[in-house]
Design a protein around this nucleic acid. Structure first.
Lengths: 182, 182
DNA sequence: TGGTACATGTAACATGTTACATGATTAG
DNA sequence: CTAATCATGTAACATGTTACATGTACCA
């Protein structure tokens, strides 16, 4: 029997459940910490996916604990579905980057407005890089040996460095003193 | 009167309409060509957004032409909404990258499966970079002077280069066991 | 005792994709 | 004539966010 295509969100929950039973709340916070920089999810979506996967037998809802906590347990079918997702469904689809839409349509914008958005976004990316660098230094100092965490962090650093270099090498007509047209 | 928040898709359509009246079909193909690498849209979504924006007075549906073509015209309100979107709503939200989810959860995967996904995705990104490089060379040869197109293409090149460098510098525990070369 | 963090869920809405239905025009 | 391309749209479904409702437990 073949399983439906899992969304990245659903698959990630199965992944986290390999470490042991977790509640929706737990999953949300662990996901935020580990993949929050590259994948966003909302609590309501987590609960919805857990309910759907429980219906399909990929996870099992455990008994209620204190504070109404309801831990979910990964089943063998869930484990199989996770590997199948990796083999089959991991998408390399378009990286959606709204700022690039602005730049591509920049000729239709007053120069100062375009410059303002670019400055705002450059600052955001600079802050992200600083945060990743800080986290990387911290991990190194703690002799954090987890290669998976290291690889994801390294991606963030390289990504943000590339973005900043792009900002700093924009054509002069965009970054500086171009005559406005429309 | 303040306008609803526009989606990136809707805003991009307003942007393209600055060049003159276009049909849904035209918008789809021009969007594909110019921002297709950083923003995906479907034809049915384009028609839906056009209908909604027509109701709101941001665009006006023109008269039917040959082949039932229905061109849309940008209104002053639409022009204003576009600039307002740039000032207010352009998001720098999370870059969603499913492969990073796989890597972050890599400890729960057989090494060969992880290696297979990585190889598959590396090839995709290598092909993209090759295509961007080709497009950049073509633009240079044609003395293509459009700085906006140049900036978006440059982003693609830098982005894909960074991704490939990341692939080639993965921790040895992930990439195989051979230490990364420089 | 009152605020904060924990915890689960539902409802409504926004956005996006795929599949389907329909027909016009052009190129071979 | 017929296949491909152009062109518009609807319907169904998938995914995602925000707002809301409800209640528990800790701690200052």
């Amino acid at each position: 029997m073949t399983i439906r295509n899992l969304s990245t969100t659903a698959a990630s929950l199965l992944g986290f459940l390999h470490s042991g039973p977790l509640t929706g709340w737990d999953l949300m916070s662990v996901a935020q910490q580990t993949i929050g920089a590259f994948w966003s999810l909302s609590l309501s979506q987590v609960y919805r996916e857990l309910a759907a996967m429980a219906r399909e037998g990929l996870v099992t809802a455990g008994e209620r604990e204190a504070r109404d906590r309801r831990p979910y347990v990964l089943t063998d079918a869930g484990r199989a579905a996770f590997v199948e997702w990796v083999d089959r469904d991991v998408e390399a689809g378009t990286i959606r980057f709204p700022l690039l839409v602005v730049v591509a349509l920049g000729r239709h914008l007053p120069a100062d407005r375009l410059a303002a958005v670019l400055a705002r976004h450059r600052a955001i990316h600079a802050a992200r890089l600083a945060e990743y660098d800080r986290a990387a230094a911290e991990a190194a100092a703690a002799h954090e040996p987890d290669p998976y965490a290291r690889a994801t962090l390294d991606f963030g650093v390289r990504q943000e460095r590339a973005v900043l270099e792009w900002f700093d090498n924009l054509p002069p007509e965009i970054s500086g003193d171009r005559p406005a047209e429309d």
